[in-house]
């Protein structure tokens, strides 16, 4: 071998050695977590857990560039050689998909027994907590008070032709929302709604964050987005207001909770369980509510975030996320082949 190649060996050796040994089965050491909740919100919580537990948490965060589905695919690709202990998802249906694909192991955290039963998997494969709501973010410079859209169906309303925006329905919570619409409307009606919205010139942004930016900047009159994105616009004092959709004679607004699950065969299952106990506990839910992501607690005794006035009184949809998870692929096929075409 050429002598120059010797240069390569120490460099690679240095970096190959950068992964610590998996912790022993009794816990301690290092725990790995794939986090779909934005790093801005999750990191300080995980650092807090590190301090209190003595465990080192190595996280792989979701990014705006590749979205949650990137993490899900990574977990699926690693099925035969899992590298992750815990999956902290910022929604639920993709977690159930992973459960159906045999990627998860059951673990019901004792810290979550105070959550309503509908937010805990009966077999312990996942625990849901702190939710975001899907809301309409309206630019107040573009829409007069009293004239705001009131329902998600307004995406197909000719009054808003070319003036409404959504994130890419193949990614993130918009993908879940699309599958939910298919579940509650039925295939035929949902397909018609999306095609009508397309014909109505609905603007498709790369993400919910970009949809929010378009509404906040006045590029469109309003958008369908998540409460954490809407809160970012409010915090930056953009000319916007939040409308909770479908409150009258309709299904109500969609709540999309975080979820946490143990990955089957991960390198440190005991450490993973300790981390799940922490994430699913009331302390994290409270801090997520008080923090910049303004998540809505699912524990009824916890107060709602101050920035989202009236959120506790908001009418919400009753969704079977298991059924929604089963619709994700067929919905994505339709969105890709017909809505985005």
């Amino acid at each position: 071998m050429h002598p120059r190649f010797l240069l390569l060996l120490p460099v690679l050796a240095l970096f190959c050695g950068c992964s610590k040994e998996p912790a022993p089965a009794t816990g301690g050491g290092r725990v790995t977590v794939a986090v779909a909740l934005d790093q801005e919100y999750a990191e300080s919580l995980l650092r807090g857990f590190e301090k209190s537990s003595g465990l080192q948490v190595d996280a792989h965060y979701d990014t705006e560039a590749t979205k949650t589905t990137g993490l899900v695919q990574t977990l699926l690709a690693e099925r035969d050689r899992p590298r992750t202990d815990v999956f902290w998802n910022n929604e639920l249906s993709q977690t159930i998909r992973l459960q159906d694909a045999g990627i998860l192991a059951p673990y019901a955290p004792t810290s979550a027994t105070d959550l309503p039963a509908r937010w805990r998997d009966p077999n312990g494969f996942w625990t849901a907590f702190g939710a975001r709501a899907r809301v309409l973010l309206v630019n107040t410079d573009k829409v007069k008070p009293g004239e705001e859209p009131q329902t998600v169906s307004d995406l197909a309303n000719p009054r808003w032709r070319g003036r409404a925006c959504i994130g890419n329905p193949l990614f993130g919570t918009t993908a879940t929302h699309a599958a939910v619409l298919f579940e509650i409307m039925g295939d035929a009606e949902a397909r018609k709604f999306f095609l009508d919205a397309k014909a109505n010139g609905v603007v498709v942004a790369a993400s919910n964050g970009q949809a929010m930016q378009k509404a906040a900047n006045g590029e469109v009159a309003w958008c369908l987005t998540d409460t954490d994105d809407a809160a970012a616009a409010l915090r930056e004092k953009k000319p916007v207001r939040i409308v909770f959709p479908d409150q009258r004679r309709a299904h109500g607004a969609l709540l999309i909770p975080n979820s946490v699950a143990l990955v089957k065969g991960g390198p440190n299952p005991e450490g993973g369980k300790r981390l799940i106990e922490f994430i699913a506990g009331a302390g994290v839910e409270r801090r997520l509510s008080e923090g910049p992501s303004v998540q809505i607690p699912l524990r009824p005794e916890l107060p709602g975030p101050a920035l989202l006035m009236g959120i506790r009184e908001m009418k919400t949809m009753d969704v079977d996320f298991g059924a929604v998870a089963k619709r994700m692929t067929s919905t994505a096929d339709f969105i890709r082949d017909q809505f985005l075409r």
Binding site: A59, H60, G70
Partner: peptide, 12 residues
């Protein structure tokens, strides 16, 4: 893209 998709845990 590579940094987003295959960065290992703890090495973002």
């Amino acid at each position: 893209e590579l940094g987003s998709l295959i960065s290992p845990h703890g090495w973002g």
